[in-house]
Design a protein around this nucleic acid. Sequence first.
RNA 1: GGCGUGGUACCCAAGCAGCAAGGGAGCGGUCUGCAAAACCGUUAUGCGUGGGUGCAACUCCCACCCACGCCUCCA
Length: 466
Amino acid sequence: MKIYNTLSRKKETFKPIEKDFVSLYTCGPTVYNYAHIGNLRTYVFEDIFKRTLLSNGYKVKHVMNITDVGHLTSDEDEGEDKMDVAVAREKKTPEEIADFYADAFKEDISKLNILQPDIWCKATEHIADMIKLVERIEKNGYSYVGKNGNVYFDTSKFANYGNFAKLDLDNLQSGARIEIDEDKKHPRDFVLWFLTKGSKFKGHILKWNSPWGEGWPGWHIECSAMSIKYLGENFDIHCGGVDHISIHHTNEIAQAEAATGKKWVNYWLHGEFLIMKQGKMAKSVGNFVTLKSLTDKNYDPLAFRYMCLNTHYRKKLNFDWEGLDSARNALSTLRENIRILKETDGLKTAQEKIEDYRSKFLDAINDDLNMPRALEVVWKLIREEEHINNQKKYEILLEFDKILGLDLGRIETSSKIPKEIDALIKKREEYRKKKDWEKADEVREEIRKKGYIIEDAPEGIRVKPI
RNA sequence: GGCGUGGUACCCAAGCAGCAAGGGAGCGGUCUGCAAAACCGUUAUGCGUGGGUGCAACUCCCACCCACGCCUCCA
């Protein structure tokens, strides 16, 4: 399969370090608030990627972190800690906040049919690993202690700093948007370990002892430390959002490689943003839409998943409600077709035709996860009239769904129809038998008002909640 | 100011040198007592604008316009 590697800015043929085995690290959520659908788009992309790896026969070891250490509102040694803000807002302990939002996150991804990682790792449970990594960096001479006592990474010592993000270091306007920190040798240096004592922000709750004094870890160190712990000093793939390329991942690479002295990650994949009319969605901007706000409006979470699949992961996705409606309708037609295929038979099967569809589908997903093209194959197969029988179509579509994750086999059952509605349906049937259409239509309208739609399909009556 | 991405029908969106995928919506039709669902047909001589290279350009090159992202925590 081919994937676009941010390291080379090219599509590359994927070759894992170990045959048939893939080590995968995906940047996880910060848990001081709900995830929004922009965050979730990235996890959907990563899920499609993981499912594609699995369908190519790889065993995948997937690690995802949970950032339950607060981030400062600025990467400098100032600003409030977001976790502390949540603590003040919700009057809970940091642990309670973190657990609450981590659970909410897991619920969200489960609703989106996203496969769980093999290992969840919480930052607060790996402070010792982070300290060890900072010590290695220190021992190798890549760090210094500022006047305020914070430990900084010395980017000038790391020869390839910024190559990953193609940063033009000479032309970066440091301080253009943020205050230059006097304690750093260079504005682009970043904190490995914050010291409580030196911090301008005094109310910080989470803190630990370290060789440099009591404090808390710099933001970037957690991913480096935990991924190395679970996947080794050199592993296959690291994923995240595009916003992380220039700072977070650039710094992670610097730290990890300064500590180990070897190449850290072979492939980097980044998902593009979901944006609204007024720009990107961000927790810090506060213009975010959660999955719950979708389900509150009776959208199937998988309609959002379909919406994500309709655009390539490296392209910005414009979110609006019309677009979500469009995805919902498409998914519903798709499911309806699957149901019909399951329940009916058709023409004779031409095996070579099936193989043709299968290979086109696999070509699409293996070409840097081209899901719009994969969906095209799905629709063409659905509407294929000539050569493939319905049972075969049904089988192969469910096979495709192992990657799409749209739960296409799900059938909107009539099983939970209340007795009251059931009685009305019987009543309507009686009118229909007598050809009293007026009365029958009245009953249909009554059923509709109670929230159900009746369809007189050729094979019988179907009832669906609206 | 620097770096980057993108502008394809009413909307979303593939394609990226050789007859412009797919979905949604609209319209017309088949089916139906009527609906609904489903299906069929239909909607870009055109791919932001202006130049250039090529037998051939949405696809390559140059300029310009517009939008968005990153350079600050952020998916």
